[in-house]
């Protein structure tokens, strides 16, 4: 074959090779940026507390800084899986027991609002997210400044305000109290696949029954009510401590993936 023909062949081969490879369909790294929606509401108690008190809320206000969805598994589930894994395998390094490891963040939003848990469901839309499997959530609760607290009954500098009536065996106590503490509710179960189509939606319910589940309102019997007949819970009392533990309790926050519309 002559040189000229080889040159022609090389031209064709070169062009073919280049164009073929250049035309191959693109592959991506997978995943996508997207957004999710979330709704947040208070779930009022459906029965008496573990201390036997029936609590009826009149006000439940919560100052929320941010919400975040993470890849990391909730503490309890991670522990259980570790035990199962260790039972059937050799000792491989795993997450240190007892510590929640949030892992990568898949979605988060700055709420920066005082939410009325006795009011209508609060809708949070267009929360920045990336696709992936969410396993846990973190709620950051911070004291409201004056601007955030304006227009609500929550006093500036406080995070939580509750007011209601507790009744047990004929005894009735009207109470109210506020907490000025900061809370990081980390590792709450929040399982669900965040899809790329932007329709993923979670419902967050704050179980107000658990907030005061350990409160013994009988300890308020000796406290004189205010002019309006409501007892202002003492700062060092058992009821306030119970509320602190209740608000800190990750089980009081249930994050549920809502079914995709049309399914």
């Amino acid at each position: 074959m002559s040189d000229k023909r080889w040159v022609s062949w090389s031209m064709v081969a070169s062009a073919f090779a280049m164009v073929t490879v250049f035309h191959c369909g693109p592959v991506s790294t997978g995943g996508a940026r997207t957004s999710i929606q979330a709704s947040l509401r208070g779930a009022t108690p459906t029965g008496p507390t573990s201390a036997g008190w029936s609590v009826t809320y009149e006000q439940a206000l919560l100052s929320v800084d941010s919400l975040r969805w993470n890849v990391g598994e909730p503490v309890f589930e991670a522990r259980l899986r570790q035990r199962l894994f260790r039972a059937i395998s050799i000792g491989t390094a795993f997450a240190h027991p007892g510590h929640y490891s949030p892992g990568d963040a898949l979605a988060d939003t700055s709420v920066l609002r005082v939410l009325d848990l006795m009011g209508p469901t609060v809708q949070l839309t267009s929360i920045t997210a990336v696709t992936g499997t969410s396993n846990s959530a973190t709620l950051t609760l911070r004291p409201a400044d004056a601007a955030r607290a304006a227009g609500t009954t929550l006093s500036a500098g406080n995070t939580v305000r509750v007011q209601g009536t507790a009744a047990k065996a004929g005894a009735t106590v009207r109470f109210r109290m506020e907490l000025a503490d900061a809370f990081d509710i980390a590792g709450t179960p929040a399982h669900g696949e965040i899809r790329a189509d932007g329709t993923t939606s979670f419902a967050i319910a704050v179980d107000l029954g658990l907030w005061l589940d350990r409160a013994d309102f009988s300890t308020l019997a000796m406290v004189a009510p205010a002019m309006d007949g409501v007892v202002d819970v003492p700062a060092d009392g058992q009821v306030r401590n119970a509320l602190f533990r209740g608000v800190s309790n990750g089980s009081a926050y249930r994050v549920t993936l809502l079914p995709a519309s049309g399914q």
């Binding site: 941010s66 963040a105 898949l106 988060d108 920045t128 997210a129």
Partner: peptide
């Protein structure tokens, strides 16, 4: 990836 340069809570950690 995820980062936070404000050293204050509330910043986004989404990548």
């Amino acid at each position: 990836y995820s980062s936070d340069w404000d050293a204050a809570p509330g910043g986004s950690r989404v990548p």
